[in-house]
Amino acid sequence: MNNDSRQIDPKRIVSMLNKSTEHMDASTRHALQRARSRAMAAKHSSNWHDGTIGLHLASLFDQHRLSMFVLAIALIAGSTGYWHHAQQHAATHLDLAILTDDLPMEVFVDK
C-alpha cells in the first residue's frame, strides 16, 4: 500500500456523514426532537427548582428570625405571668393566714 492510498480527505467523509444525518428516518428525528424537548423541560425544571430553593431558603431565614422573635416574646410573657402569679399567690396566702389567725412569726418581726 503506497502513501497515496493511505490518505483520505476527512472533509469528504464528513460531507457524506452530513448527508447521512439529512436522510435520517422520521421516527429517529421525532425521538431526537422529543429528547431535546425533555432536556429543555429539565432545564426549566432545574431553574425553577433553583429559584424555589432560593426563595425557600430566604423564607426559611425569615421564618427563623420570626420564630426567634416569637420565642423571645413568649419567654417574656411567660416570665411576667409567672412572676405575677407568684405575687398573687403570696398575697392570697397571707390573706388566708390573717383570716385564720395563723400568721407566721416573721409577720410580727420588724424587719
Binding site: 444525518t21 435520517m24 429517529t28 429528547a35 431535546r36
Partner: peptide
C-alpha cells in the same frame, strides 16, 4: 443532536441505546 445520535450509534451500534445516550447527554447538559 443528529450528529450526536450518529456518533453514539457508531459507538454502541444500537439505535435505542444511542437515543438514550443522546437524551441523557442533553439532559445532563441542560
Amino acid at each position: 443532536e443528529h450528529r450526536a445520535y450518529k456518533q453514539a450509534l457508531f459507538a454502541v451500534r444500537n439505535e435505542e441505546s444511542a437515543l438514550d445516550i443522546v437524551q441523557d447527554a442533553m439532559i445532563k447538559l441542560a
